[in-house]
Design a protein around this nucleic acid. Structure first.
Lengths: 251, 251
DNA sequence: CCGACTTTGTGCATGCGTTCACAAGCGGTA
DNA sequence: TACCGCTTGTGAACGCATGCACAAAGTCGG
């Protein structure tokens, strides 16, 4: 669907179909994978690899080759049939689509164990995400530099975020503080938030929140442990669905 | 579909349709949400709330009410029509399905900034996930207790994981070490891994890996920042898809 | 005891994402 | 130049997840 490229279309449409249209059409799931491809490709580039096939790249990224090609097709046709992809070219196009050509100033709120860890990454995972502000409520922390940046009091959040043009806020506070911190970030014009607090944040529609929830991750793993155990039990006993420990399972 | 409960079915099927069948049928996405519902419900229980409707619960969990009801229906029918759900009952059933009635011993590998943070959570987010072993390669760390547990050398990983029946391994090492650590965990019988290292782990089919990748999260946010910026640009100029900075976007 | 009202549980339709399979396109070779 | 083999890009089928809308089932008031 959508406009093909250079297919001899003789309408009045300009030659360049605008990346915006494309970007809007990329499935969320594909965006996440593009970031993974980017990392794998960067690693390859560092090792002097200049060309790669969809098969190789997909294996390194842990996905199916067809899926990889479809994902790449969302951002355009930059491969050469019969040959593969040029690593450099792919890297630069993915970076462009992911918006990594601009710098995204990051603020970390909550300088506890996790906040420390995040701030110390310095220049955050991958390049392009400079941490430019740290906030906490603890008076003992204010002014102390962590990862090269001094900690500010949380009350200064609005002023500083505006001044330093923070585009991404990272919440690493205890749960009770998270919503209030979030509200302040939003009122400071931050439109993207990465939330480590185990809380469901309420935000306006124009703000994007991504959640990293350790408890949820652990519980999903726990579910799989339980499922495996159940399977093992029913296999070892027979396959009628009545496990050895039927009554252990029920409360 | 599947067997209804106590509908007067007079086949030879035993009364209890076995939770195993159910567990296998729960969509992955629903499992993640069940964990969220569980947290919200626990919070409600702590505040003395005893009953809740799907509407209330769904709002607190940030999802659509129909989806919530469907999710809950995967684990059985424990609500009362015209009334809602009993908080305690729901909590205990979700805990059972997620396998939280058993204790899952956790090992953390890589006691850097992040590993420290994880170990210090002590008893990990939510109850039921006791951290029972820590590992690192750094000789300076060996023997030092973090969060109450002494750090062991990584070479002891197999022996200790077997001895302490570790069921979940958490990898918080630098990227180059991750795959090797993963292999050792697997050979120690660990079947569930939570990976914080920005690496695509290769594991056998019977091992479950979940990935928490900060770089990917940041880049997804970056993508949305860029998309918003593009939208804003094209809106402010008109709506023909040709933005003000068309040539800035292209390399 | 009955009728009105509330809320659950779920069949069905819709849409998104994944997978398949193959035509189109390109480099290499004779 | 013409052919051959390889790899991309994508139309189309499939499957899963989401959302809708309503019957079933319960409570409450009279």
């Amino acid at each position: 669907m959508a406009a093909q490229r250079g297919e001899g279309e003789t309408t009045t449409t300009p030659a360049e179909p605008a990346d915006r249209e494309r970007a809007r059409a990329i499935p969320e799931a594909a965006v996440a994978r593009l970031a993974v491809y980017l990392r794998v490709l960067s690693g390859m580039a560092d090792q002097g690899v200049t060309a790669v096939s969809s098969e190789e790249l997909s294996q390194a990224a842990g996905v199916n080759a067809a899926k990889l090609r479809k994902d790449l097709s969302y951002i355009g046709s930059y491969g050469t049939r019969g040959v593969g992809y040029d690593v450099e070219v792919l890297v630069s196009h993915i970076e462009r689509i992911l918006g990594l050509t601009r710098n995204h100033s990051v603020a970390v709120v909550g300088i506890g164990n996790l906040g420390h860890a995040l701030a110390n990454y310095g220049g955050f995972p991958g390049r392009g995400f400079p941490v430019t502000a740290l906030f906490d409520v603890d008076a003992d922390l204010i002014g102390i530099p962590v990862g090269g940046i001094p900690v500010n009091h949380i009350d200064e959040i609005t002023a500083i975020c505006l001044e330093r043009e923070v585009s991404i806020g990272v919440i690493a506070t205890p749960p009770p503080a998270a919503q209030s911190v979030c509200d302040r970030l939003v009122s400071a014009g931050v439109q993207c938030i990465l939330n480590f607090a185990p809380v469901v944040l309420q935000v306006p529609d124009n703000v994007e929140v991504r959640k990293v929830d350790l408890a949820v991750e652990m519980q999903i793993l726990s579910f799989h442990v339980a499922r495996r155990a159940d399977e093992a039990a029913s296999v070892s006993v027979g396959n009628n669905g009545l496990g050895v420990d039927g009554m252990v399972i029920r409360p």
